[in-house]
Write a protein that binds this DNA or RNA. Structure first.
Lengths: 349, 349
DNA sequence: CTTCCAAACTAAACCGATATAGTCAAGACC
DNA sequence: GGTCTTGACTATATCGGTTTAGTTTGGAAG
């Protein structure tokens, strides 16, 4: 800035020391509540610091104690998909809640591939920008775990089951139980031909859910039930749904991995002239405003994503502070929110 | 960590210097492409740095040159609302795009009030955590502008019109023109009683849009048209809509500020037995997957929010680098995406 | 009246980079 | 041959904190 301004000068510890007539070290002791200064000096220093509106310079502190004072979060999502996600902003809110009071900042980045994500971890860690990271969307044989472990970068994954890798604790939700809940609910309504439209195969929870879906269907004797893979995009799910419903013995109920998939498919089914829920029941693994505002609103599993974010951050902070591994933690179970998109199986089946 | 591990040690410039047999300064010159070292030394140093996988310590660099290497973004949103927003994640993606290649990180925080937001600005600036911030949702007589100016914290606002405050440049969209577009579109379809359900009054764009709505309606001779205030929550909008539609001379078309408001109101109207668009046309200022998956899909103004984010970040980086004020910039105009929720006014009107 | 100890400090090193002032040798020039 | 200049470095200060190793002082204990 060229013009002279009355912007408050950003005070340093040396200025405070000069004003208080003590050394820098004494000021540091006083402001950090450590022993080594008298109570009287402490209050005097504190008063001066308050008056000058002093805040510790993050870079200096980080440099001194080799700590960044921030955690990182990389989200691998295309811009288009991101705007439709309810999971992410909710998780973010929760993470924020977990951070309040810890004087830790959140560093974040949106990327388009796993490679970029791993590169971000490497760079953040080498540059001491973060002290740890939260990782989401675990994959089958996830290459990121290897990178995190190799770097020694503290991390917590938000996952569908406890980490295989002891070094990377997980905050997890029981995806198997969730799947079972949906299948049994539909079975209880009389459905015998149930389809499950799952997301990308490489995601770990896709695999967990599909396995459980098969096991559950078999246990209940639902022979004609099957799961199919679809992309997370609305169009993908709609196309897969139209294909499913065009078959000779079409399913009477369909389960979807996400809110977007369920909503897009609801419209696709209605476009084929099927009445929901009279002729077809639709349920979703993911609850959100989107499915709540559907016509009809869609029955879904409600998960407290905000709480998950908070739990993940707290676990990570603990992990960082302890400098030792912490155990995986199971988050709250999802609840089934029954809405108008699901009902008794049609008699003809 | 207690166990011995093969984690790569995070190399420092001193180690590189030792290995190359030169001084720290020479290494710094070599790695930053400055004169003072021979080409031969430069390549040798670079090779060693690559081998050790060296990345500059961000804190050390920040401390030295009094630059944080990060920009900040505070979002004032409740966790519940946040999960339903499409604006925010899209803006975030755009911001990310604007940051790529600049070696600048994004620091972010979700808060629940303007006061917390201002406190975050103060703290971030005093602690040198950020070099500048992106501010969204300008308000009427916005107290944040004062704080930003007083601190001398470089900022860019994403706004509905150019900044009144020369010191805080804006990346803006012409909200007046947008409002006019919607009103004229509905007028062209024969609608004469148009209602506008706007968001919170304290937001600047609410005021801009309402003013223009009145002016536009008057110019077209739409006497019975009016705008009403509603919260951004789905329930608020639905309640306001039911109230509007319950009146004796009910509107034949309603405009909504956001996608969520439009969707919730669509269901509310359908709940009252009104057919959309035959008896009631609904349009939204905001496009998103939500309105696209509506039943029927809702006519809306499509804005390139991602591009706005990118533009805002680029403007901010320029602002920071130039250390002088930069002018406000107008972003791309929104386009009207006509869908099935709007049609000719019913004959009875 | 020493001696010892703890409390309350100060001085200085340190973190890892950048920036600046010097040093040194080789070559140019008068 | 002596002075200048330039390139290629080295040594050191610096950023703003934290931390460690002293130092001073007052009072208690012997």
């Amino acid at each position: 800035m060229i013009l002279a301004m009355n912007h408050p000068k950003r005070a340093t510890i040396s200025e405070i020391a000069a004003r208080a007539g003590v050394s820098k070290g004494a000021v540091s002791f006083a402001l950090n509540g450590r022993p080594g200064v008298s109570e009287e000096t402490r209050t005097r220093v504190q008063a001066i610091a308050d008056e000058l509106n002093w805040k510790p310079n993050r870079a200096a502190r980080a440099l001194g104690q080799s700590q960044a004072g921030a955690i990182g979060f990389v989200l691998n999502r295309s811009a288009r998909i991101l705007g439709t996600e309810t999971f992410f902003p909710q998780l973010l809110s929760g993470m924020q809640l977990g951070l309040t009071g810890s004087h830790t900042a959140l560093h974040m980045m949106v990327v388009g591939s796993v490679e970029e994500e791993m590169e971000a971890y490497r760079e953040w860690w080498q540059s001491r920008i973060v002290d740890g990271v939260i990782m989401v969307d675990p994959r089958v044989d996830d290459p990121r775990l290897e990178v995190l472990e190799h770097l020694g970068l503290p991390a917590v994954q938000v996952a569908g089951h406890p980490s295989q890798t002891a070094a990377i604790p997980a905050v997890w939700a029981d995806d198997r139980a969730a799947t079972d809940t949906l299948v049994r609910y539909l079975h209880g309504l009389g459905h015998r031909r149930i389809a499950y439209v799952a997301g990308p195969e490489e995601l770990e929870h896709t695999q967990l859910r599909r396995q459980e879906f098969s096991a559950s269907a078999e246990a209940l004797g639902l022979d004609a039930s099957q799961s199919v893979i679809s992309g997370y995009e609305a169009d993908d799910a709609a196309r897969v749904t139209r294909e499913l419903l065009g078959r000779s013995a079409r399913p009477t109920a369909v389960m979807y991995d996400t809110d977007v998939m369920a909503m897009a498919s609801l419209r696709a089914a209605q476009g084929l002239g099927l009445r929901v829920p009279d002729e077809l029941s639709i349920v979703s693994f993911e609850d959100s405003l989107l499915v709540q505002l559907g016509n009809p609103p869609i029955t879904s599993l409600t998960r407290d994503t905000v709480a998950f974010g908070t739990l993940a951050v707290k676990t990570l902070l603990e992990h960082i502070a302890a400098e030792t591994s912490v155990p995986s933690i199971e988050g709250a179970q999802p609840r089934l929110s029954i809405r108008e998109s699901s009902g008794p199986a049609p008699p003809s089946s």
